[in-house]
Design a protein around this nucleic acid. Structure first.
Lengths: 249, 249
DNA sequence: CGCCCTTTTGAGGCATTTCAAACATTGTGG
DNA sequence: CCACAATGTTTGAAATGCCTCAAAAGGGCG
């Protein structure tokens, strides 16, 4: 589970005959630019669960566009502990945080077998002047990451453990719904351990909270399969029980 | 303390005769582009402590470049509680998070009287094709914000209260040092309340931790003035006492 | 089939919060 | 310029949410 994806692995397809239906940075571009940008996109060989797309500290080569499967990104602190920063699903672009120093500031690991494309960073740079739509797309992507990370901090800073889990499940629900999947029934691609770390609570707490939620009739849990029975209950929980600590008038 | 900065307030100076010595997005550009970009930069009238640069939800007009003073940015959640997201100092650029939806996703408020410039968002868009250096600068800025926000989440998720305060003080120290100011003596521009909220602990805890740090001889505190006596002690504290919860092998 | 890892459940402990009350500081109007 | 109000800070004592430890139950995979 340890090798980083090799940049020597053979390209699989090209954008021209890509049959993906997920949101895609390339297809989001105006028609006249697609060809030019697509020329530099490489569809890479799938990688298996547990393998890394990149690791913190490595030099940045490319942006990663996830086509299928899911990915977890996480930070290592100097003292060796980790913080899961985000979960990524098809259509997401990864490696924005590497733009600052041209070095990855987080690691990304596949939670299941994934398919993805890459576009070399220097090619993107070169294309910017001829494809302003590309710059907008990237900037919006980066901005989205900022918002997500700040919302994550808000969740960790202001919400109680039950509110965190409820918020997390609702966020997943919304993301799936936005992709045309069911908002109320889905499989978690991450372990309880990952959820616990992302929400910064103990694994045991996650387990207890799931049982509580089932007792309340808010959802049913079978292994990693979730069926939400009452979005309303989750929304109520997500907004109650914060730790106060307000700052301004 | 409630009006947002008016875009009708008169320009003060231009980049040509700007005497600022703080890091600046414009001066970071290659010589031949400065003039073109600078033409669109407006130095705005200073605003006082407690006034907002922008508020969450408002449409985005411009990027904000802080020239003097300090700013706090924070998020409001649906249920009305707040999370301080970051503190900003001269040279920082604000409003990246607004790029996603062209609407501010956080609020920014002056912690003391500040001087700043703005550059309209649509002008930046228009300049991108002719000034690739500008795009790099902005992208690096955005990436820096992602890294900061993710580090903030790591701090909240993995560190104990003492470690959080120590990390916070060290981060301030490094930022001041990078600006040519003392790394060991400085004034906090934010209240204990703001620090507490940023670190997601109770104000009382911050107060107690400051007294502890003084007892340990790590620093002296007088009101908002901090003198760090032992960076080493702070570094040790910043890395001990995390809550574990590791996720991967 | 059996080992191992993940998940669940219970009981006790501790870091941090909450509540309460001085105290200091800043701002304001007489 | 001082008194008073409002706000911010400090300190103490009690309460609690969540963690830690411990152990059993459940699935996945060779």
């Amino acid at each position: 589970m340890d090798n980083v994806v090799s940049f020597n692995s053979p390209p699989q397809t090209s954008c021209a005959n890509c049959r993906c239906t997920t949101p895609c940075m390339v297809r989001a571009l105006p028609q006249e630019l697609r060809g030019e940008v697509a020329r530099h996109v490489t569809a890479r060989a799938p990688i298996a669960r547990g393998e890394h797309l990149f690791r913190q500290g490595e030099p940045m080569n490319a942006f990663y566009m996830l086509r299928a499967g899911s990915v977890k990104s996480y930070l290592d602190s100097e003292d060796g502990c980790e913080q899961v920063a985000a979960f990524h699903f098809p259509g997401d672009i990864l490696a924005f945080d590497a733009m600052a120093e041209r070095r990855h500031m987080s690691s990304a690991i596949a939670l299941e077998t994934i398919a993805f494309c890459t576009i070399p960073h220097d090619r993107v740079m070169a294309l910017i002047t001829s494809a302003p739509g590309l710059w907008s797309a990237l900037m919006r992507g980066a901005a989205g990451h900022i918002v997500d990370a700040e919302q994550h901090a808000l969740l960790l800073g202001q919400k109680s453990a039950p509110a965190r889990l409820a918020s997390f499940l609702l966020a997943l629900s919304h993301r799936f719904a936005a992709r045309g999947c069911s908002a109320t029934e889905f499989n978690l691609s991450m372990s309880r351990q990952d959820i616990a770390n992302y929400l910064a609570v103990a694994v045991e707490t996650i387990s207890r909270l799931f049982t509580d939620l089932q007792r309340k009739g808010a959802l049913t849990v079978d292994r990693r399969f979730i069926r939400i029975c009452s979005l309303q209950t989750l929304e109520d929980m997500a907004n109650e029980g914060q730790v106060a600590r307000v700052s301004h008038a």
